[in-house]
């Protein structure tokens, strides 16, 4: 019996089966939330698709959404499956045939999960070469609820990612914090860092072509730990648009729109708690 027919017979034992013709549609999205210091990810599977969450220092949460339409086949036997997995290992397995995004035949993926306590099984195939992976899963931890709801959003800017990418890549990493100012009046949007060599501001005029929507109601200045927010630049560089929102508590939400190779749109979201009770310039 060949490997693939064996697999088919075993399909009935899995509670989650997802198939995909192009593994890069998953790996690019997961890469956007992966960084070396955040290895453990929680995976939630529902009938809408997969949500993969990583958290750092209990104050940053990154979510990647892979809606069920991304997969050519998506079958779920139980509702609300969740487990934790080492994202670094998962990424290495997904990229086993190389991670170059430039054209060429992309490997196909089949992902199976047998339920609580079982490993996540991956089957990748490229040009007749088949890779079987079995990755241990861990007990799911509770993830943070940032309680960020759109009703409480005070400021929101949607812009093209490229204009933020440059600013983010040039951030002065000697600064401990990144200060984000959003305001209905000048300077509208300002990113500031306070490093060893001085203070840097980057201003973004709201009339710029890069800014697609500008809805700021209150002047708000918040500080976020730069080292924690910096990894989101990965998401920024693969996305086409970004929505930056803050709520009345100063919590920051960054939503990235990522278009995959099949033209589907996926979202990656970062939530970030403010670094401290900023000395309020928010007179209300």
């Amino acid at each position: 019996m060949t490997l693939s027919t064996q697999q088919r017979d075993q399909d009935s034992q899995y509670v989650l089966i997802a198939k995909l013709d192009n593994v890069r549609n998953v790996s690019t999205i997961l890469k956007a939330i992966h960084s070396k210091d955040r290895e453990i990810a929680t995976v939630f599977a529902s009938e809408n698709g997969l949500k993969v969450t990583v958290e750092t220092a209990k104050c940053i949460q990154a979510n990647a959404f892979l809606q069920s339409e991304v997969f050519q086949e998506y079958r779920l036997k139980e509702n609300n499956i969740s487990f934790q997995i080492n994202l670094t290992i998962l990424m290495e397995c997904l990229n086993i045939f190389g991670s170059n995004t430039a054209g060429g035949a992309a490997p196909a993926l089949k992902m199976c999960y047998g339920g609580y306590g079982t490993p996540l099984m991956l089957l990748l195939e490229e040009l007749g070469v088949v890779t079987d992976c079995s990755i241990k899963t861990l007990e799911p931890d509770e993830t943070l609820d940032f309680n960020f709801c759109s009703a409480n959003v005070v400021n929101k800017i949607i812009m093209k990612s490229e204009c933020l990418t440059d600013a983010f890549q040039e951030l002065d990493m000697t600064s401990e914090v990144l200060e984000i100012l959003m305001s209905p009046d000048k300077p509208y949007l300002r990113l500031s860092t306070f490093g060893h060599c001085g203070t840097t501001f980057s201003d973004f005029p709201k009339e710029s072509d890069m800014v697609e929507s500008f809805q700021c109601t209150t002047t708000q200045t918040n500080r976020y730990k730069l080292s924690l927010i910096k990894p989101s630049v990965k998401a920024l560089s693969v996305s086409s648009k970004v929505s930056m929102r803050t709520d009345h508590r100063g919590f920051l939400s960054l939503q990235y729109m990522i278009r995959n190779e099949d033209g589907q749109v996926c979202f990656v979201e970062y939530y970030c708690a403010p670094d401290e009770e900023a000395e309020d310039e928010d007179y209300d």
């Binding site: 080492n86 007749g128 070469v129 088949v130 990755i135 241990k136």
Partner: peptide, 12 residues
């Protein structure tokens, strides 16, 4: 390894 088993199969 403790965390994962990966096997790459070449054929023919």
């Amino acid at each position: 390894t403790e965390q994962a088993t990966v096997s790459v199969n070449f054929k023919d």
